[in-house]
């Protein structure tokens, strides 16, 4: 990636309904048996999107071109598998708006440069309803200003400080950030009584 700064993501939306949508539902465990993330998009909500007759009316089937997911409470709870946000990103999701996120899931999104924005239940439900009525409607998430715009209306959302600064300043690659302090790491490690 040439410019790591992410100040805005935008696209049409997909409402993924329900509280406590867990990572086993987002990406069933049997698909974790691959040593790369390459094919993960194929497995996104694999079981939830299918019934006996094939694809059902799951939102991902109804909004196949979406780039912004709009979710409810505690989205991504359960396991730490980065496969879940990797699958969403590779499927086409560039940003997520929700009532709240499970922490490891949100951390994983940050590692991938995918902003997670939170808003109250009413805002989220309005936005979900708007997407149903406007499947092609553009939804820009302004990461710096912490706003989401849809249908000519701009609403405030929260993006946590570390995520916002990391994305806006293009410093979400924490490996590079932390490698800069390699000498101090050695000092801290040496001060720990349990490290030889």
């Amino acid at each position: 990636m040439d410019d790591p700064r992410i100040t805005e993501v935008a696209g049409s939306g997909v409402p993924i309904y329900g509280d406590d949508v867990d990572t086993d539902r987002i990406l069933p465990a049997r698909f974790l048996k691959e040593t790369t993330f390459e094919n993960m998009a194929d497995y996104l909500f694999y079981d939830a999107r299918r019934d006996e007759d094939g694809f059902n009316d799951h939102p991902l089937n109804r909004f196949p071109d979406a780039e912004i997911a709009v979710v409810n409470e505690n989205f991504g709870c359960g396991s730490s598998r980065e496969h879940a946000p990797q699958a969403m990103l590779r499927w086409g999701i560039d940003g997520v708006v929700g009532e709240s996120f499970a922490e490891i899931f949100a951390d994983n999104c940050k590692s991938l440069g995918v902003p997670t924005a939170t808003a109250d239940a009413e805002t989220v439900e309005d936005l979900q309803a708007w997407i149903e009525a406007n499947p092609d409607g553009e939804i820009p998430i302004d990461v710096e200003a912490e706003t989401v715009t849809y249908g000519g209306e701009t609403v405030a959302v929260d993006i946590d400080d570390a995520t916002r600064e990391a994305l806006v300043d293009g410093i979400w690659d924490t490996t590079a950030l932390m490698r800069a302090n390699v000498n101090r790491v050695a000092e801290t490690a040496a001060s720990l009584p349990y490290v030889d």
Binding site: S79, S80, I104, T175
Partner: peptide, 10 residues
Amino acid sequence: VGVGTSQIRD
């Protein structure tokens, strides 16, 4: 703490 794969890389 449980971490994702990018954090394992870190």
